[in-house]
Structures are given as structure tokens and as C-alpha cells.
Design a protein around this nucleic acid. Structure first.
Ligand SMILES: [Mn+2]
Ligand SMILES: [Mn+2]
Ligand SMILES: [Mn+2]
Ligand SMILES: [Mn+2]
Lengths: 218, 218
DNA sequence: TATAATTTTTAGGCTTGTCTAAAAATAGGG
DNA sequence: CCCTATTTTTAGACAAGCCTAAAAATTATA
């Protein structure tokens, strides 16, 4: 069965909301995420349930079926591979690729995406540190924690971000908090949750909001 | 003003029909080409006329306005560059790329397409020998004639095709009538229009239908 | 546990792009 | 120049996705 552009965006959104919050996904959460109204979401949920891509019971929230999950993972695979292409081959910056990948992810061809994967040398992570599912839909995710959760004195490597907005990525770029950098916690301000970090021999203070959106591997 | 996926396909079709047949384009020609019904075409023509992308007078056929023409050329540029990418970088065959390019051509980003152009080293032709418009929409087309129009004894180089179907391209591939080959006319059968050609020291007979769809530069 | 607030669904409508059937315009042959 | 065949347009419908307003269900609160 074919899925439309729009249906694919719903599946992907449900997948992300589900793994982030882990449980069933609410109508409102989807509508916020996709910038549509709750009533529109209900309409679509009925359609996706008919196609057996989600498990849906009125008022109870939704989860993806196995098929729906695989579809979502395929879209994510395409999204992330296109991002790698744009950055590695066309020299886009990591903050410039999201919207383009958002369109490219709907190009429908298994051969194309597998060839692209090969052309890019089977990358394991996208430009934001997110893992790329392989052609069988298998996704090996690494245990990462946020800077906000680290303790004074701990060391780690910046390995991902929880927020993909241009604003945020550009801020990280400007302050040198880029993927792969070694970071250590110098101090944590109890008053406002700000964190003083050491990076490239420089001391820097980042807000709690920022600290919550940088992911670290220890 | 933005144009939808569908509107773009109409513009491109009108452009091709117009330059092929040179004059105004009829409702039926468009409907055949796009596999839609004439009534649907009329609806769309009204919309495109409102947007000033075509000149349309009831029952009189249509032509593109300058803006419409530029839009069409941009889509063709994208189509052909993506085809080059698929063949040169992802090792697709020339008969496998058309449908994918048909989707990719609607990805909407000037920067992306200019970066792609650069990445591909500013190719002048696509895998089917068709010229690629430059970033200013300028298209240098070469004078080409069909094999059917050549005379006995004439020589030339295969430089393009007038038919892009998988079937036709695979036939050419199989019989060695590929882009760049030198060809000469050995005989022409008056009965059915078949042409006996010499190619790579081999003598071969091709039907009139095939001869009409191979383009030659003298 | 009753009431209030919030979330979700239903009802009814709109736009885009498609269709079929029927009407209108144009083009061709005698 | 008229009648017929063909082309094109109009009329009316439908599916997909979206919306607003109102109703129903759920959850929170006193
Ligand atoms: Mn998307
Ligand atoms: Mn990413
Ligand atoms: Mn297309
Ligand atoms: Mn081509």
C-alpha cells in the first residue's frame, strides 16, 4: 500500500513522539508538532488506523503498529542519509539541511536510497549525531545523556543534539560547541541551572535550556 | 508566488509540447501527455492563467508567458541535473532515471540545485543528450536531425533521443546505438522506411519508428 | 464525588485536483 | 453555407487534508 507525503509525516512524528516520551502519543502532541489542529489529526488517525499503520482507540492516544514503525524508520533513514549527502557532498552547514531533507525524505525509491547509502560510504550518523537506520531498518542507538544531567568534574564528548532548529545549531557553531568536541563540567549554578563548561581549553557558561539540548557520550 | 507540484508538471508539459510542435498547445495534447481528462486540464488552465503563467483564451489553446517559461526551464534544469547525478554518481543506467528525476525535479531550492550543478562539474547535457539550462535559464540547443532524415552515405554522431521510454532506451543499449557513437547510412528501404546503418564496424537495420527517434549531429 | 478544566471527537465547510456526463464552440466535408 | 464530427468547456461530484465551532469524553480539583 502506498502512503502519501502527509501520511508519512504523521508516521514520522508519531514515531519521534513515542520514543521521546515513551508510551502512547496524544492527539494534541501530534497537532502541536505538525502545526495542524487537533481535529485534523483525529481525521488522519482514523485513516492511518484503517490502513493498520497505527493502533488507535478513541480518546486513548496512538502507537505505531510494526508496519507503521518500519515505514517511519524508513523515512528517518532517508531523511538522515540525505542530510549526510547535503553536508558531505554539497557542503551545506549542519543548520541548513533539515528543511531540504524534510522534502527529500519523501522520494520513493528503495534502490535510490541504498545507492545513496553506498555512495556516502554507509555513514552511521547524520550531521546532528543521530544514528542512521540500516537497510533492514535496524537502528543502533547509543546511550547519551544531556549536559544538564552531568555532574561537576565529569568529562564527555558532544555526540548529539535534542533540538534541530537553525537558531540553536548556529548558536552551537558560534560558541564552538560542535559535534565531537570534548567537554567537562566546571560548575553548575543552582540558581538558574546554568552550567560552566570547559571546551577547547576555554571556559564557557551555557544556560539550562542549552544544557538540556546537548547530548553527551561519557 | 509558489507553484504546486501539479502546476509545475503542467508548465513543463506545455513547454515541451510548445517547442516540439511550435505554436499554441491544445487542451487535448496536454491531457494526453499527462494522462488526465480534458475537463481537468481546462480547470488547471484557468488557474495558471489567473497566475499569469500562461496565455489562455477559451478554445484557442495556450502558450507560456515569459514567467511561465522561466519556471518551466527551471524545472527542466532540475530534472536533467538530477538525472546526471543519478547516472554519474549513483551508477544508474540511462533508462532508469527518468521517473526518479520526475519526482526530484520538484524539490524546491535554488541553492541546492546550484550546488548540485557545481558538484557535477556544470554538465552541459543530461544522460539522454538533452541540453541543461544554466542557472540563468539559458539553454543552448544544438541543431540535431533524426536518422530518418539522413541520406544514404551521410555520417554523423548519435547525440540525443526523442523518446525517453525505458523500452526504447534499453533497445538502443542492447543494439549498441548509444550516445556518442559514430553512425553512417548504408541504405534506406523505401517499402517500410527501415534504415540500414553502420555502427562500430557492424551493419544493422533499424525500423522507421526507431530512426525517427534517434537524433544526430552531423 | 461533583464540578470545572482540558482534551478529543464530531459536524459542517473549504480548497485542490481529479472525474463523468452534457452542453457549447470550432473545424471539415459536401 | 449547413450539417456533422471533434474539441473544448461547463456542471456537478468526489477524495484528501485542512479549518472552525460545538459536543462529548476524560482528567483534575475542590
Ligand atoms: Mn517531511
Ligand atoms: Mn538530522
Ligand atoms: Mn514531475
Ligand atoms: Mn533526460
Amino acid at each position: 500500500m502506498t502512503t502519501s507525503f502527509t501520511e508519512e509525516n504523521y508516521l514520522k512524528t508519531i514515531y519521534h513522539l513515542n520514543t521521546d516520551e515513551n508510551g502512547t502519543v496524544s492527539t494534541n502532541a501530534i497537532s502541536e508538532s505538525l502545526h495542524t489542529k487537533a481535529a485534523s489529526v483525529t481525521d488522519m488517525l482514523k485513516k492511518l488506523a484503517d490502513k493498520e499503520l497505527i493502533n488507535y482507540a478513541k480518546y486513548q492516544g496512538v502507537t505505531l503498529t510494526e508496519i507503521g514503525k518500519q515505514k517511519a524508520i524508513t523515512i528517518i533513514r532517508k531523511h538522515r542519509l540525505w542530510e549526510v549527502f547535503l553536508v558531505d557532498k554539497l557542503s551545506f552547514k549542519w543548520d541548513e539541511v533539515h528543511d531540504l531533507a524534510e522534502e527529500l525524505e519523501h522520494i520513493n525509491s528503495e534502490i535510490l536510497i541504498n545507492r545513496l547509502d553506498e555512495f556516502l560510504n554507509f555513514p552511521e550518523k547524520d550531521p546532528h549525531g543521530d544514528p542512521i537506520p540500516d537497510k533492514n531498518g535496524i537502528l543502533k542507538s547509543q546511550e547519551l545523556i544531556t549536559v544538564a544531567k552531568m555532574n561537576i568534574g565529569e568529562h564527555g564528548k558532544i555526540s548529539g543534539v535534542r533540538e534541530h532548529s537553525k537558531d540553536f545549531l548556529q548558536y552551537l557553531e558560534k560558541t564552538g560547541l560542535t559535534l565531537g568536541c570534548e567537554i567537562h563540567i566546571i560548575d553548575k549554578i543552582t540558581f538558574d541551572g546554568a552550567v560552566v563548561v570547559g571546551i577547547n581549553q576555554i571556559e564557557q557558561t551555557i544556560s539550562r535550556e542549552v544544557a538540556k539540548n546537548i547530548l553527551i557520550s561519557l
